[in-house]
C-alpha cells in the first residue's frame, strides 16, 4: 500500500512538472494563437464587405448572430451586414462568411472552414487562373437570396462537379442565413 502511494506520488510529481512547463509555453504562444484566429476572422469580414471599416456584433432573441458594418466608426451609416452561414457538407460543417449590402444583395462570400473530400468538395475554395477569388465563391457576388439554388435544383449557382452535397450545403446555408437576417430586420423594422 505504501509502495503504491509512493508510486502515485512520483507519477504526480512528473505530471505536475509537465503541466507547469506547458503552462509556461502556453503563456508564450497563447497571444500568438489568438492573434492568428482573430486575424483570420477580421480579414474575412473585411474581404466580404470592403466598404465597411467598423463592425458591431448583434444577436437576435432567437440567438442568430450578425454584424452591422459601418462606413466609419463615428457615423451611423450602415453600409451592410455580415452573417455566418453553417451548412452540413459531406464530411464537415462548412462555415461561410457572407457580406451583404443594405438591400440584402450579396457583396461577396468567403468559405472560412471546410474539411470536405480532397479533390472534390475542397474545390469550393479552388482558385482558377489568375482570379483572386475562388470561382465557386465568385458566383455568389451580386446575387439575391431567391436566386441561390444550385443548377440541379433550378437555380443559378453552378455546382462543383462530383461534389453536389458540398455545393448544396454552401448555397442553401447562405440563402437560409440571409433569409433569417432579412426576417429579423424587416420584422423589427430597424435597418
Amino acid at each position: 500500500m505504501k509502495y503504491i502511494l509512493k508510486l502515485g506520488l512520483i507519477l504526480m510529481v512528473y505530471t505536475v512538472v509537465a503541466g507547469l512547463s506547458l503552462g509556461f509555453i502556453n503563456n508564450i504562444t497563447r497571444s500568438k494563437i489568438l492573434e492568428q484566429e482573430g486575424n483570420a476572422g477580421e480579414k474575412a469580414q473585411r474581404e466580404v464587405l470592403p466598404e465597411a471599416s467598423a463592425f458591431v456584433d448583434f444577436t437576435t432573441n432567437g440567438g442568430f448572430e450578425y454584424k452591422k458594418g459601418y462606413a466609419d466608426k463615428d457615423t451611423a451609416d450602415i453600409v451592410g451586414y455580415v452573417v455566418n452561414a453553417y451548412g452540413n457538407g459531406y464530411s464537415s460543417t462548412i462555415r461561410t462568411i457572407v457580406g451583404l449590402d443594405t438591400t440584402f444583395t450579396i457583396e461577396a462570400i468567403e468559405i472560412v472552414y471546410q474539411e470536405e473530400t480532397p479533390g472534390l468538395g475542397t474545390k469550393c475554395v479552388e482558385i482558377r487562373g489568375d482570379s483572386p477569388e475562388p470561382w465557386f465563391e465568385a458566383q455568389f457576388d451580386g446575387k439575391k437570396p431567391d436566386e441561390l439554388l444550385v443548377d440541379k435544383d433550378g437555380g443559378t449557382i453552378d455546382a462543383i462537379s462530383g461534389a453536389t452535397i458540398t455545393s448544396r450545403a454552401v448555397t442553401n446555408s447562405v440563402r437560409e442565413a440571409i433569409e433569417e437576417l432579412k426576417k429579423h430586420l424587416t420584422k423589427g423594422g430597424s435597418q
Binding site: 506547458l22 509555453i25 504562444t29 497563447r30 494563437i33 492568428q36 483570420a40
Partner: peptide
Amino acid sequence: TFVTVVKLVMAGYFP
C-alpha cells in the same frame, strides 16, 4: 508534454 509544445507552437506560428 512535447506533443503539446509542438501543437501550441504550430497553432501560433503555422496556422
